[in-house]
Design a protein around this nucleic acid. Structure first.
Lengths: 222, 222
DNA sequence: CTCCATCGTTAAACACTGTTAGACTATCGA
DNA sequence: TCGATAGTCTAACAGTGTTTAACGATGGAG
Protein backbone atom coordinates (compact mmCIF):
# COMPACT_ATOMS: atom_id res chain seq x y z
CA UNK A 1 0.00 0.00 0.00
CA UNK A 2 2.75 2.42 0.93
CA UNK A 3 4.55 1.68 -2.28
CA UNK A 4 2.51 3.99 -4.43
CA UNK A 5 2.95 6.75 -1.89
CA UNK A 6 6.70 6.27 -1.80
CA UNK A 7 6.73 6.53 -5.57
CA UNK A 8 4.74 9.71 -5.46
CA UNK A 9 7.13 11.14 -2.90
CA UNK A 10 10.04 10.22 -5.15
CA UNK A 11 8.36 11.95 -8.08
CA UNK A 12 7.83 15.00 -5.93
CA UNK A 13 11.50 15.01 -4.99
CA UNK A 14 12.65 14.80 -8.58
CA UNK A 15 10.18 17.48 -9.58
CA UNK A 16 11.71 19.73 -6.95
CA UNK A 17 15.21 18.87 -8.13
CA UNK A 18 14.28 19.82 -11.69
CA UNK A 19 12.85 23.09 -10.44
CA UNK A 20 15.99 23.72 -8.41
CA UNK A 21 18.23 23.09 -11.39
CA UNK A 22 16.09 25.29 -13.62
CA UNK A 23 16.12 28.08 -11.05
CA UNK A 24 19.88 27.92 -10.55
CA UNK A 25 20.47 28.08 -14.28
CA UNK A 26 18.02 30.84 -15.01
CA UNK A 27 19.01 33.23 -12.22
CA UNK A 28 22.62 32.79 -13.34
CA UNK A 29 22.25 32.88 -17.10
CA UNK A 30 18.82 34.32 -17.75
CA UNK A 31 15.64 32.70 -18.91
CA UNK A 32 16.51 32.67 -22.59
CA UNK A 33 19.78 30.82 -22.09
CA UNK A 34 18.25 27.91 -20.20
CA UNK A 35 17.42 24.87 -22.29
CA UNK A 36 15.68 21.65 -21.38
CA UNK A 37 18.88 19.83 -22.22
CA UNK A 38 20.94 21.90 -19.77
CA UNK A 39 18.43 21.30 -16.99
CA UNK A 40 18.36 17.60 -17.82
CA UNK A 41 22.12 17.40 -17.66
CA UNK A 42 22.15 19.15 -14.30
CA UNK A 43 19.71 16.68 -12.77
CA UNK A 44 21.40 13.80 -14.64
CA UNK A 45 18.31 12.67 -16.52
CA UNK A 46 17.49 12.57 -20.20
CA UNK A 47 15.70 15.62 -21.66
CA UNK A 48 12.63 13.50 -22.37
CA UNK A 49 12.31 12.56 -18.70
CA UNK A 50 11.47 16.13 -17.73
CA UNK A 51 8.34 15.96 -19.83
CA UNK A 52 6.64 13.60 -17.40
CA UNK A 53 7.10 16.26 -14.71
CA UNK A 54 6.35 19.39 -16.74
CA UNK A 55 4.27 19.22 -19.92
CA UNK A 56 6.36 21.91 -21.56
CA UNK A 57 9.17 24.36 -20.96
CA UNK A 58 6.61 27.09 -20.47
CA UNK A 59 4.94 25.11 -17.70
CA UNK A 60 8.28 24.69 -16.00
CA UNK A 61 8.89 28.41 -16.05
CA UNK A 62 5.33 29.08 -15.08
CA UNK A 63 6.10 27.16 -11.89
CA UNK A 64 9.16 29.36 -11.37
CA UNK A 65 7.04 32.45 -11.93
CA UNK A 66 4.69 31.25 -9.21
CA UNK A 67 7.74 30.88 -7.00
CA UNK A 68 8.62 34.44 -7.97
CA UNK A 69 5.28 35.76 -6.77
CA UNK A 70 5.86 34.03 -3.46
CA UNK A 71 9.31 35.62 -3.31
CA UNK A 72 7.79 39.01 -4.08
CA UNK A 73 5.27 38.45 -1.31
CA UNK A 74 8.03 37.82 1.22
CA UNK A 75 10.10 40.64 -0.17
CA UNK A 76 7.42 43.29 0.16
CA UNK A 77 5.61 42.03 3.22
CA UNK A 78 7.05 43.77 6.24
CA UNK A 79 4.27 43.66 8.86
CA UNK A 80 6.29 45.93 11.11
CA UNK A 81 6.49 48.69 8.53
CA UNK A 82 2.89 48.12 7.48
CA UNK A 83 1.35 48.29 10.94
CA UNK A 84 3.33 50.79 12.95
CA UNK A 85 4.41 53.58 10.64
CA UNK A 86 2.01 56.17 9.32
CA UNK A 87 0.07 54.84 6.32
CA UNK A 88 1.75 57.07 3.77
CA UNK A 89 5.24 55.98 4.76
CA UNK A 90 4.12 52.37 4.70
CA UNK A 91 2.63 52.80 1.22
CA UNK A 92 5.78 54.48 -0.05
CA UNK A 93 7.91 51.78 1.52
CA UNK A 94 5.77 48.97 0.11
CA UNK A 95 5.81 50.15 -3.48
CA UNK A 96 9.51 50.94 -3.34
CA UNK A 97 10.07 47.39 -2.18
CA UNK A 98 8.18 46.21 -5.25
CA UNK A 99 10.54 48.25 -7.36
CA UNK A 100 13.56 47.02 -5.42
CA UNK A 101 12.42 43.45 -6.03
CA UNK A 102 12.69 44.06 -9.76
CA UNK A 103 16.28 45.16 -9.24
CA UNK A 104 17.26 42.36 -6.88
CA UNK A 105 15.61 39.59 -8.87
CA UNK A 106 15.46 40.87 -12.44
CA UNK A 107 15.15 37.38 -13.89
CA UNK A 108 12.14 36.58 -11.74
CA UNK A 109 10.62 39.95 -12.51
CA UNK A 110 11.12 39.34 -16.20
CA UNK A 111 9.37 36.01 -15.97
CA UNK A 112 6.52 37.37 -13.85
CA UNK A 113 5.79 40.66 -15.59
CA UNK A 114 7.52 41.17 -18.92
CA UNK A 115 8.27 37.92 -20.72
CA UNK A 116 5.68 37.44 -23.44
CA UNK A 117 6.31 33.74 -23.90
CA UNK A 118 4.75 33.01 -20.50
CA UNK A 119 1.39 34.50 -21.39
CA UNK A 120 -0.73 32.17 -19.32
CA UNK A 121 -0.02 34.24 -16.22
CA UNK A 122 -2.58 36.95 -16.93
CA UNK A 123 -5.26 34.34 -17.54
CA UNK A 124 -4.48 32.42 -14.39
CA UNK A 125 -4.38 35.13 -11.76
CA UNK A 126 -6.86 33.04 -9.80
CA UNK A 127 -4.13 30.49 -9.24
CA UNK A 128 -2.10 33.10 -7.40
CA UNK A 129 -4.43 33.53 -4.48
CA UNK A 130 -1.72 35.00 -2.32
CA UNK A 131 -1.21 37.78 -4.84
CA UNK A 132 -4.81 38.84 -4.29
CA UNK A 133 -4.16 38.67 -0.54
CA UNK A 134 -1.07 40.81 -1.02
CA UNK A 135 -3.03 43.42 -2.97
CA UNK A 136 -5.80 43.32 -0.38
CA UNK A 137 -3.33 44.29 2.32
CA UNK A 138 -2.14 47.24 0.29
CA UNK A 139 -5.73 48.29 -0.39
CA UNK A 140 -6.40 48.16 3.34
CA UNK A 141 -3.36 50.33 3.89
CA UNK A 142 -4.66 52.85 1.37
CA UNK A 143 -8.04 52.78 3.10
CA UNK A 144 -6.31 53.62 6.35
CA UNK A 145 -4.62 56.54 4.63
CA UNK A 146 -8.00 57.73 3.36
CA UNK A 147 -9.52 57.42 6.81
CA UNK A 148 -6.61 59.39 8.23
CA UNK A 149 -7.38 62.15 5.74
CA UNK A 150 -4.11 61.64 3.86
CA UNK A 151 -6.00 60.87 0.65
CA UNK A 152 -9.30 62.47 -0.44
CA UNK A 153 -12.37 60.69 0.89
CA UNK A 154 -13.62 59.89 -2.60
CA UNK A 155 -10.44 57.95 -3.45
CA UNK A 156 -11.08 54.39 -4.62
CA UNK A 157 -8.49 52.13 -2.94
CA UNK A 158 -8.33 49.76 -5.90
CA UNK A 159 -7.86 52.54 -8.41
CA UNK A 160 -5.23 54.16 -6.20
CA UNK A 161 -3.46 50.83 -5.87
CA UNK A 162 -3.26 50.38 -9.60
CA UNK A 163 -2.00 53.91 -10.14
CA UNK A 164 0.76 53.53 -7.58
CA UNK A 165 1.63 50.13 -8.96
CA UNK A 166 1.87 51.48 -12.50
CA UNK A 167 4.02 54.34 -11.23
CA UNK A 168 6.73 51.99 -9.93
CA UNK A 169 6.17 49.34 -12.58
CA UNK A 170 7.21 51.78 -15.30
CA UNK A 171 10.69 52.45 -13.92
CA UNK A 172 11.01 48.77 -12.98
CA UNK A 173 10.47 47.64 -16.56
CA UNK A 174 12.72 50.22 -18.17
CA UNK A 175 15.42 49.11 -15.76
CA UNK A 176 14.89 45.38 -16.32
CA UNK A 177 14.65 45.86 -20.07
CA UNK A 178 17.73 48.08 -19.98
CA UNK A 179 16.19 50.96 -21.90
CA UNK A 180 17.65 53.83 -19.88
CA UNK A 181 20.72 55.74 -21.05
CA UNK A 182 23.83 54.77 -19.05
CA UNK A 183 23.82 58.03 -17.09
CA UNK A 184 20.17 57.80 -16.04
CA UNK A 185 19.40 56.37 -12.62
CA UNK A 186 16.28 54.16 -12.53
CA UNK A 187 16.18 54.10 -8.71
CA UNK A 188 15.77 57.86 -8.52
CA UNK A 189 13.19 57.74 -11.29
CA UNK A 190 11.19 55.13 -9.37
CA UNK A 191 11.26 57.27 -6.22
CA UNK A 192 10.25 60.40 -8.10
CA UNK A 193 7.47 58.82 -10.14
CA UNK A 194 6.03 57.20 -7.03
CA UNK A 195 6.27 60.51 -5.19
CA UNK A 196 4.47 62.28 -8.02
CA UNK A 197 1.72 59.66 -8.09
CA UNK A 198 1.21 59.89 -4.33
CA UNK A 199 1.15 63.68 -4.43
CA UNK A 200 -1.26 63.53 -7.35
CA UNK A 201 -3.62 61.21 -5.49
CA UNK A 202 -3.44 63.46 -2.45
CA UNK A 203 -4.27 66.47 -4.60
CA UNK A 204 -7.27 64.58 -5.93
CA UNK A 205 -7.87 63.58 -9.55
CA UNK A 206 -10.81 62.41 -11.60
CA UNK A 207 -10.15 58.75 -12.39
CA UNK A 208 -11.63 56.50 -15.05
CA UNK A 209 -10.22 53.10 -14.09
CA UNK A 210 -13.04 50.65 -13.33
CA UNK A 211 -13.33 50.15 -9.59
CA UNK A 212 -13.47 46.44 -9.01
CA UNK A 213 -16.03 44.63 -6.87
CA UNK A 214 -15.16 43.00 -3.55
CA UNK A 215 -13.49 40.03 -5.19
CA UNK A 216 -12.25 41.71 -8.32
CA UNK A 217 -11.24 38.61 -10.26
CA UNK A 218 -13.58 36.20 -11.91
CA UNK A 219 -15.86 38.59 -13.79
CA UNK A 220 -17.07 37.32 -17.12
CA UNK A 221 -17.42 40.79 -18.60
CA UNK A 222 -14.27 40.10 -20.66
CA UNK B 1 31.29 54.18 -63.87
CA UNK B 2 27.56 54.05 -63.28
CA UNK B 3 27.64 50.29 -62.94
CA UNK B 4 28.83 50.25 -59.35
CA UNK B 5 26.17 52.76 -58.47
CA UNK B 6 23.48 50.71 -60.09
CA UNK B 7 24.68 47.71 -58.09
CA UNK B 8 24.57 49.69 -54.89
CA UNK B 9 21.07 50.83 -55.72
CA UNK B 10 20.06 47.20 -56.32
CA UNK B 11 21.55 46.21 -52.98
CA UNK B 12 19.65 49.01 -51.34
CA UNK B 13 16.45 47.80 -52.97
CA UNK B 14 16.92 44.24 -51.78
CA UNK B 15 17.83 45.46 -48.33
CA UNK B 16 14.54 47.34 -48.25
CA UNK B 17 12.67 44.30 -49.53
CA UNK B 18 14.16 42.19 -46.73
CA UNK B 19 13.15 44.81 -44.21
CA UNK B 20 9.66 44.93 -45.70
CA UNK B 21 9.29 41.17 -45.50
CA UNK B 22 10.60 41.11 -41.94
CA UNK B 23 8.23 43.89 -40.92
CA UNK B 24 5.22 42.26 -42.50
CA UNK B 25 5.96 38.98 -40.77
CA UNK B 26 6.70 40.42 -37.37
CA UNK B 27 3.71 42.76 -37.13
CA UNK B 28 1.52 39.81 -38.08
CA UNK B 29 3.08 37.00 -36.07
CA UNK B 30 5.24 38.73 -33.48
CA UNK B 31 8.97 39.06 -33.21
CA UNK B 32 9.59 35.63 -31.73
CA UNK B 33 7.83 33.80 -34.54
CA UNK B 34 9.85 35.37 -37.32
CA UNK B 35 12.79 33.34 -38.53
CA UNK B 36 15.50 34.15 -41.01
CA UNK B 37 14.25 31.29 -43.13
CA UNK B 38 10.71 32.70 -43.27
CA UNK B 39 12.00 36.11 -44.31
CA UNK B 40 14.26 34.50 -46.88
CA UNK B 41 11.36 32.55 -48.34
CA UNK B 42 9.25 35.71 -48.57
CA UNK B 43 11.93 37.57 -50.53
CA UNK B 44 12.73 34.39 -52.50
CA UNK B 45 16.39 34.23 -51.52
CA UNK B 46 18.35 31.68 -49.56
CA UNK B 47 18.70 32.32 -45.82
CA UNK B 48 22.43 32.79 -46.21
CA UNK B 49 21.91 35.65 -48.66
CA UNK B 50 20.38 37.83 -45.95
CA UNK B 51 23.64 37.80 -44.04
CA UNK B 52 25.35 40.05 -46.57
CA UNK B 53 22.66 42.64 -45.85
CA UNK B 54 22.35 42.26 -42.08
CA UNK B 55 25.19 40.78 -40.03
CA UNK B 56 22.71 39.04 -37.72
CA UNK B 57 19.06 38.68 -36.93
CA UNK B 58 19.46 41.16 -34.09
CA UNK B 59 20.82 43.77 -36.48
CA UNK B 60 17.86 43.25 -38.74
CA UNK B 61 15.45 43.85 -35.90
CA UNK B 62 17.53 46.70 -34.63
CA UNK B 63 16.84 48.36 -37.98
CA UNK B 64 13.13 47.71 -37.48
CA UNK B 65 13.34 49.20 -34.00
CA UNK B 66 14.86 52.33 -35.50
CA UNK B 67 11.94 52.38 -37.89
CA UNK B 68 9.70 52.05 -34.86
CA UNK B 69 11.16 55.15 -33.24
CA UNK B 70 10.53 57.04 -36.43
CA UNK B 71 6.95 55.75 -36.41
CA UNK B 72 6.59 56.82 -32.78
CA UNK B 73 7.89 60.24 -33.71
CA UNK B 74 5.25 60.66 -36.40
CA UNK B 75 2.60 59.17 -34.15
CA UNK B 76 3.16 61.56 -31.26
CA UNK B 77 4.21 64.65 -33.16
CA UNK B 78 1.15 66.77 -33.72
CA UNK B 79 2.48 70.34 -34.17
CA UNK B 80 -1.06 71.68 -34.12
CA UNK B 81 -1.79 70.21 -30.70
CA UNK B 82 1.66 71.12 -29.44
CA UNK B 83 1.58 74.75 -30.44
CA UNK B 84 -1.95 76.01 -30.10
CA UNK B 85 -3.50 74.30 -27.10
CA UNK B 86 -2.59 75.19 -23.56
CA UNK B 87 0.63 73.47 -22.49
CA UNK B 88 -0.98 71.10 -20.01
CA UNK B 89 -3.45 69.76 -22.56
CA UNK B 90 -0.64 69.36 -25.06
CA UNK B 91 1.46 67.45 -22.52
CA UNK B 92 -1.45 65.20 -21.61
CA UNK B 93 -2.17 64.62 -25.28
CA UNK B 94 1.44 63.87 -26.12
CA UNK B 95 1.99 61.27 -23.44
CA UNK B 96 -1.35 59.64 -24.12
CA UNK B 97 -0.28 59.34 -27.73
CA UNK B 98 2.85 57.56 -26.56
CA UNK B 99 0.65 55.12 -24.69
CA UNK B 100 -1.68 54.77 -27.65
CA UNK B 101 1.29 53.94 -29.85
CA UNK B 102 2.02 50.97 -27.62
CA UNK B 103 -1.53 49.75 -28.21
CA UNK B 104 -1.60 50.40 -31.94
CA UNK B 105 1.85 48.95 -32.63
CA UNK B 106 2.48 46.50 -29.80
CA UNK B 107 5.08 44.58 -31.79
CA UNK B 108 7.11 47.70 -32.49
CA UNK B 109 6.76 48.78 -28.88
CA UNK B 110 7.95 45.38 -27.74
CA UNK B 111 11.00 45.62 -29.97
CA UNK B 112 11.76 49.19 -28.92
CA UNK B 113 11.16 49.04 -25.19
CA UNK B 114 10.71 45.59 -23.74
CA UNK B 115 12.45 42.87 -25.72
CA UNK B 116 15.62 41.93 -23.89
CA UNK B 117 17.26 40.22 -26.85
CA UNK B 118 17.72 43.56 -28.61
CA UNK B 119 19.85 45.05 -25.87
CA UNK B 120 22.01 47.28 -28.01
CA UNK B 121 19.31 49.95 -28.10
CA UNK B 122 20.08 51.44 -24.70
CA UNK B 123 23.76 51.71 -25.58
CA UNK B 124 23.11 53.33 -28.91
CA UNK B 125 20.70 56.11 -28.06
CA UNK B 126 23.07 58.46 -29.86
CA UNK B 127 22.13 56.78 -33.11
CA UNK B 128 18.55 57.88 -32.62
CA UNK B 129 19.13 61.57 -32.90
CA UNK B 130 15.50 62.25 -33.68
CA UNK B 131 14.51 60.68 -30.37
CA UNK B 132 16.52 63.31 -28.58
CA UNK B 133 14.84 65.93 -30.74
CA UNK B 134 11.48 64.45 -29.83
CA UNK B 135 12.28 64.62 -26.12
CA UNK B 136 13.58 68.16 -26.51
CA UNK B 137 10.24 69.26 -27.89
CA UNK B 138 8.44 67.78 -24.92
CA UNK B 139 10.90 69.40 -22.53
CA UNK B 140 10.22 72.74 -24.23
CA UNK B 141 6.53 72.13 -23.77
CA UNK B 142 7.06 71.46 -20.07
CA UNK B 143 9.14 74.62 -19.82
CA UNK B 144 6.25 76.53 -21.33
CA UNK B 145 3.97 75.04 -18.70
CA UNK B 146 6.40 76.11 -15.98
CA UNK B 147 6.56 79.63 -17.39
CA UNK B 148 2.78 79.73 -17.48
CA UNK B 149 2.75 78.87 -13.79
CA UNK B 150 1.13 75.48 -14.40
CA UNK B 151 4.08 73.68 -12.82
CA UNK B 152 6.15 74.99 -9.87
CA UNK B 153 9.05 77.22 -10.93
CA UNK B 154 11.63 74.87 -9.44
CA UNK B 155 10.46 71.98 -11.66
CA UNK B 156 13.26 70.46 -13.76
CA UNK B 157 11.86 69.83 -17.27
CA UNK B 158 14.00 66.75 -17.80
CA UNK B 159 13.00 65.21 -14.49
CA UNK B 160 9.36 66.00 -15.14
CA UNK B 161 9.63 64.46 -18.59
CA UNK B 162 10.99 61.21 -17.21
CA UNK B 163 8.31 61.05 -14.53
CA UNK B 164 5.51 61.54 -17.03
CA UNK B 165 7.11 59.08 -19.39
CA UNK B 166 7.40 56.45 -16.65
CA UNK B 167 3.77 57.09 -15.69
CA UNK B 168 2.49 56.09 -19.12
CA UNK B 169 5.23 53.54 -19.79
CA UNK B 170 4.04 51.44 -16.84
CA UNK B 171 0.50 50.89 -18.17
CA UNK B 172 1.90 50.49 -21.69
CA UNK B 173 4.16 47.61 -20.67
CA UNK B 174 1.57 45.79 -18.56
CA UNK B 175 -0.76 46.01 -21.55
CA UNK B 176 1.83 44.87 -24.09
CA UNK B 177 3.04 42.09 -21.82
CA UNK B 178 -0.56 41.12 -21.11
CA UNK B 179 -0.26 41.16 -17.35
CA UNK B 180 -3.60 42.74 -16.50
CA UNK B 181 -6.58 40.67 -15.44
CA UNK B 182 -9.16 40.38 -18.24
CA UNK B 183 -11.54 42.82 -16.56
CA UNK B 184 -8.95 45.54 -16.02
CA UNK B 185 -8.75 48.33 -18.59
CA UNK B 186 -5.20 49.47 -19.37
CA UNK B 187 -6.38 52.59 -21.24
CA UNK B 188 -8.13 53.94 -18.17
CA UNK B 189 -5.13 53.04 -16.04
CA UNK B 190 -2.85 54.98 -18.40
CA UNK B 191 -5.08 58.04 -18.23
CA UNK B 192 -5.34 57.88 -14.45
CA UNK B 193 -1.65 57.31 -13.79
CA UNK B 194 -0.71 60.15 -16.12
CA UNK B 195 -3.29 62.36 -14.43
CA UNK B 196 -1.89 61.52 -11.02
CA UNK B 197 1.67 62.23 -12.16
CA UNK B 198 0.67 65.59 -13.64
CA UNK B 199 -1.27 66.54 -10.51
CA UNK B 200 1.68 65.43 -8.39
CA UNK B 201 4.11 67.56 -10.38
CA UNK B 202 1.74 70.52 -10.11
CA UNK B 203 1.50 70.01 -6.35
CA UNK B 204 5.30 70.04 -6.21
CA UNK B 205 7.51 67.17 -5.04
CA UNK B 206 11.11 66.79 -3.98
CA UNK B 207 12.84 64.85 -6.77
CA UNK B 208 16.10 62.91 -6.79
CA UNK B 209 16.47 62.04 -10.48
CA UNK B 210 19.70 63.51 -11.84
CA UNK B 211 18.94 66.57 -13.94
CA UNK B 212 20.81 66.15 -17.18
CA UNK B 213 23.08 68.74 -18.80
CA UNK B 214 22.12 70.56 -21.98
CA UNK B 215 22.88 67.62 -24.25
CA UNK B 216 22.15 64.82 -21.84
CA UNK B 217 23.57 61.93 -23.86
CA UNK B 218 27.24 61.23 -24.42
CA UNK B 219 28.53 61.47 -20.84
CA UNK B 220 31.46 59.22 -20.08
CA UNK B 221 30.53 58.87 -16.45
CA UNK B 222 30.10 55.10 -16.78
C1' DC C 1 6.96 -18.33 -8.31
C1' DT C 2 5.51 -16.90 -12.65
C1' DC C 3 3.48 -13.89 -15.70
C1' DC C 4 1.77 -9.68 -17.16
C1' DA C 5 0.84 -4.93 -16.97
C1' DT C 6 2.33 -0.65 -15.81
C1' DC C 7 5.39 3.01 -15.18
C1' DG C 8 9.65 5.68 -15.48
C1' DT C 9 13.32 6.30 -18.47
C1' DT C 10 15.81 6.32 -22.51
C1' DA C 11 18.01 6.92 -27.31
C1' DA C 12 16.79 8.50 -31.46
C1' DA C 13 14.42 11.17 -34.35
C1' DC C 14 11.55 15.30 -36.03
C1' DA C 15 11.12 19.82 -37.20
C1' DC C 16 12.74 23.72 -36.21
C1' DT C 17 16.31 27.71 -35.08
C1' DG C 18 20.66 31.22 -36.23
C1' DT C 19 24.83 31.03 -38.52
C1' DT C 20 28.86 29.75 -41.46
C1' DA C 21 32.07 27.40 -44.89
C1' DG C 22 32.88 26.40 -49.38
C1' DA C 23 31.58 26.01 -53.98
C1' DC C 24 29.52 28.18 -57.95
C1' DT C 25 28.57 31.78 -61.17
C1' DA C 26 27.88 35.97 -63.31
C1' DT C 27 29.68 40.28 -64.00
C1' DC C 28 33.35 43.93 -64.33
C1' DG C 29 38.03 46.10 -65.12
C1' DA C 30 42.35 45.39 -67.25
C1' DT D 1 40.15 37.06 -73.02
C1' DC D 2 41.66 36.63 -68.48
C1' DG D 3 41.54 36.99 -63.54
C1' DA D 4 39.29 39.14 -59.64
C1' DT D 5 35.46 40.19 -57.17
C1' DA D 6 30.85 40.27 -55.44
C1' DG D 7 26.59 37.85 -54.81
C1' DT D 8 24.30 33.76 -54.14
C1' DC D 9 23.73 29.05 -53.38
C1' DT D 10 23.78 24.33 -51.04
C1' DA D 11 25.04 21.95 -47.23
C1' DA D 12 26.35 21.62 -42.89
C1' DC D 13 27.06 22.79 -37.79
C1' DA D 14 25.42 23.32 -33.41
C1' DG D 15 21.74 24.23 -31.02
C1' DT D 16 16.52 24.36 -29.71
C1' DG D 17 11.62 22.12 -27.85
C1' DT D 18 9.19 18.03 -28.32
C1' DT D 19 7.59 13.20 -29.58
C1' DT D 20 7.89 8.37 -30.50
C1' DA D 21 8.95 3.77 -29.75
C1' DA D 22 11.46 0.65 -27.28
C1' DC D 23 13.46 -1.01 -22.96
C1' DG D 24 13.89 -2.53 -18.28
C1' DA D 25 12.55 -2.73 -13.66
C1' DT D 26 9.13 -3.17 -10.47
C1' DG D 27 4.58 -4.57 -8.22
C1' DG D 28 0.32 -7.07 -8.07
C1' DA D 29 -2.52 -11.10 -9.50
C1' DG D 30 -3.12 -15.86 -10.30
Amino acid sequence: MGVKERHERDKEVLRARILDAARELFVAEGYRNVSIRKIAEKVEYSPAALYSYFPSKDDLFFALAEEGFRKLFEFTNDPQAFASADPLTAIREGFLRYYQFSRTHPEYFDLMFVDRSVPKISHEWERFGFVEQMIDEVRALIRRAIDAGLFPAETDPDVAFHILWAAVHGPATVAVCDRLAPDENPDALARDTLEAAIAGLRAGIRTTFTPSPCHPKGNDSN
